[in-house]
Amino acid sequence: MAEALSASSIEAAHERIRPHVRHTPVFEVEGAPFGIAEPISLKLELFQHAGSFKTRGAFNNLLTRPVPAQGVTAASGGNHGAAVAYAAACLGVRARVFVPTISSPVKIQRIRDYGAEVVVGGDRYADAAVLSEAYAAESGALVVHPFDSPFTIAGQGTVALEWEADAGHLDTVLVAAGGGGLVAGIGLWFGRRTKVVAVEPQGSRALHAALEAGGPVDVPVESIAADSLGARRVGDLVYAVARDCVDEVVLVGDNAIEETQRRLWRRFGIAAEPGGAAALSALLPGGYRPAPGERVGVLVCGSNVDLAKLAATVE
Results as ranks from 00 to 15, higher is better:
S6M: 13
I10T: 06
E11C: 13
A13V: 05
A13L: 01
P19S: 14
P19D: 06
T24R: 04
P33S: 04
A37E: 14
P39Y: 00
L44C: 15
N61L: 01
L63R: 09
A74T: 06
A74W: 08
S76N: 00
G77L: 04
G78M: 01
G81Q: 02
A82H: 08
Y86A: 11
V93K: 08
V97M: 10
P100S: 12
P105M: 09
V106K: 08
K107Q: 05
R110E: 13
R112W: 01
A136Y: 02
D148W: 07
P150R: 09
T158E: 01
E162D: 14
G180K: 08
L188Q: 05
G191I: 09
P201S: 02
A206N: 12
A209W: 06
E212M: 12
G215F: 05
V217R: 09
A231Y: 05
C245E: 10
D247Y: 00
D254F: 00
A256L: 10
E258T: 10
A271S: 10
G275T: 03
G276Y: 04
A279P: 03
P290Y: 06
A291N: 09
G293K: 08
R295S: 11
L299D: 09
N304T: 11
N304C: 09
N304L: 12
L307D: 03
V314M: 09
